[in-house]
């Protein structure tokens, strides 16, 4: 197992809501794995929901940006850039940064509210989701050096989700219509990324809105496309997409809409496996879709 290194990079660790409340394993993995890459994750007291840029923003845009600015102000006070393990949280915080920077009147208005709670935001704060931080701040070589068990048996399709690359001018990570960087990160773990055609949303907003059969249709066409292009498994960097593919596929299989489905892994789980954690510690035992050569390969690692 790679030793914990002296930290070369420190971030304010932004957990969001879905991961600590539903998928604490991903939080655990980030806390175990990042220090091995020379990263210190600093907990900031008082971070709240980012808030959600889809439904909460739709409810009230002023409250949305004030709460985002409040989170940014907390990191600013600690003098640290923010790393999130949820791309959607990063998108909220980056969008708030962007809007407040280009609109000084809005920044004044937001600070007017924040100051009543004893806080103040002074200009933008650097924010990155963990995939962007891995790629830009650490580099694929750093990840490759930390790999103890290359995942060479994995032919895997990466699903980027809605907010890993969008909006392009704000997130500034990769081309959402032809992403390459996530593939390079998978290659660093020894896996073989598979190109496929579908690049859209996983369908989870349809599930949330009660349109289950439409949601399952999207998921089915996406996973079929991945298999058609030679993938035996899929990876995601978003916990909401993970939930959609893991639980959604299980429901769709039960309902006779889909066949066997394909195993889905969060990128942090793959990092854990490649960096030498046991299957138990990676939390893969709890997965529901366990089939094909990809899963056999994973099980044979222990």
């Amino acid at each position: 197992m790679t030793d914990i290194k002296i930290p070369e990079k420190r971030y304010a660790f932004f957990l969001g809501c879905l991961i600590p409340a539903r998928f604490p394993r991903f939080e655990y993995l980030a806390r175990v794995l990042f220090p091995k890459l020379g990263v210190e994750l600093v907990d900031i007291e008082g971070f709240s929901c980012c808030p959600d840029p889809v439904r909460f923003k739709g409810a009230d845009q002023l409250t949305w940006i004030v709460l985002a600015a409040r989170n940014l102000a907390l990191a600013q006070q600690a003098g640290l850039p923010i790393i999130t393990i949820c791309p959607t949280c990063a998108m909220t915080l980056m969008t708030a940064n962007h809007e407040l920077q280009r609109n000084p009147d809005l920044l004044r208005k937001v600070n007017g509210v924040l100051e009543k709670t004893g806080r103040h935001l002074d200009g933008p704060v650097e924010v990155k989701h963990f995939m962007k931080a891995l790629y830009e701040d650490l580099g694929t070589h750093r990840l490759r050096d930390a790999v103890e068990r290359p995942l060479s048996f994995l032919h895997i399709a990466y699903h980027g989700g809605c907010h890993e690359n969008n909006p392009v001018d704000i997130v500034q990570f990769d081309n959402p219509f032809n992403p390459r960087k996530s593939g390079e990160l998978l290659e660093a773990l020894g896996a073989h990324p598979v190109d496929y055609l579908e690049i859209g949303c996983c369908g989870s907003p349809l599930s949330l809105d009660g349109k289950m059969s439409d949601s399952h249709k999207i998921m089915k066409s996406k996973t079929e496309d991945m298999v058609h292009h030679g993938a035996g498994a899929m990876a995601v960097g978003c916990a909401s997409c993970f939930q959609q593919f893991e639980i959604g596929q299980t429901m769709a299989i039960r309902g006779g809409i889909m066949g066997a489905g394909i195993p889905v892994f969060h990128f942090l789980e793959l990092m854990g496996l490649a960096m030498g954690l046991s299957l138990e510690e990676t939390g893969l035992g709890g997965h529901k879709i366990k089939n094909g050569k990809a899963w056999e390969g994973v099980v044979s690692l222990d």
């Binding site: 409340a21 539903r22 909460f56 409810a59």
Partner: peptide
């Protein structure tokens, strides 16, 4: 708006989180 959106806003105001935390978690 659908009732789940009002529920979400209430939850964030009450707990600071957008998802309820269960005993199991």
């Amino acid at each position: 708006a659908p009732s789940y959106v009002y529920d979400l806003a209430r939850l964030v105001i009450r707990t600071g989180m957008a998802f309820p935390v269960t005993r199991r978690t």
